Amino acid sequence: MNVYVGIQECEGRIIGSTSLKEKRRVIKSGISRIQHRFNLSVAEVGFQDDRQRTRLAMAGVGSSKKVVEQELRQALRLLEELDGLEILHAELSFV
């Protein structure tokens, strides 16, 4: 049996954020939506102290590479549609 672990990393800009509190509100909203909608782990993994930038990572595990990839891509689309967040770069990989 094959096990696939997919990781989606993305860098983004928090639009109009003037404080870490505003940034965290936007990030928490995105993380919460992903966790409730998809079977993925997600966390902010970079730029925690920068009020206008973020690096998020999402991970999924499954027996089908296609299913894991599809969930990660849908989660990225959700982030792209999130008010206040502009995704600048995203990279999907399997380990």
Rank of each mutant, 00 (worst) to 15 (best):
E9M: 13
E9H: 07
E9F: 08
C10A: 12
E11F: 11
E11G: 09
E11W: 08
G12W: 02
R13T: 08
I14Y: 02
I15H: 00
I15F: 00
G16K: 00
S17T: 04
T18K: 11
T18S: 11
S19Q: 02
R25Y: 10
V26S: 01
V26E: 05
V26F: 05
I27M: 10
K28I: 05
G30P: 02
I31Q: 09
S32R: 13
I34T: 12
Q35E: 13
Q35H: 13
H36V: 04
R37E: 11
F38D: 04
S41K: 03
E44N: 02
V45D: 03
V45K: 03
V45F: 01
G46F: 06
F47N: 11
Q48S: 11
Q48K: 12
D49A: 10
R51W: 13
R51Q: 15
Q52M: 08
R53Q: 14
R53A: 12
R53M: 11
T54C: 14
R55H: 12
R55N: 08
R55K: 15
L56F: 01
L56V: 15
A57H: 07
A57R: 11
A57G: 05
M58D: 01
M58H: 04
V61H: 02
G62E: 08
S63N: 14
S63M: 12
S64C: 08
K65Q: 14
K65V: 12
K65D: 05
V67E: 15
V67S: 15
V68P: 07
V68F: 07
E69K: 15
E69T: 12
Q70H: 14
E71M: 14
E71A: 12
E71D: 15
E71G: 08
L72W: 05
L72R: 01
R73S: 14
R73C: 10
R73L: 15
A75W: 05
A75V: 03
A75T: 06
L79R: 01
E80C: 06
E81P: 02
D83F: 09
D83L: 10
D83E: 15
G84K: 03
G84L: 04
E86L: 10
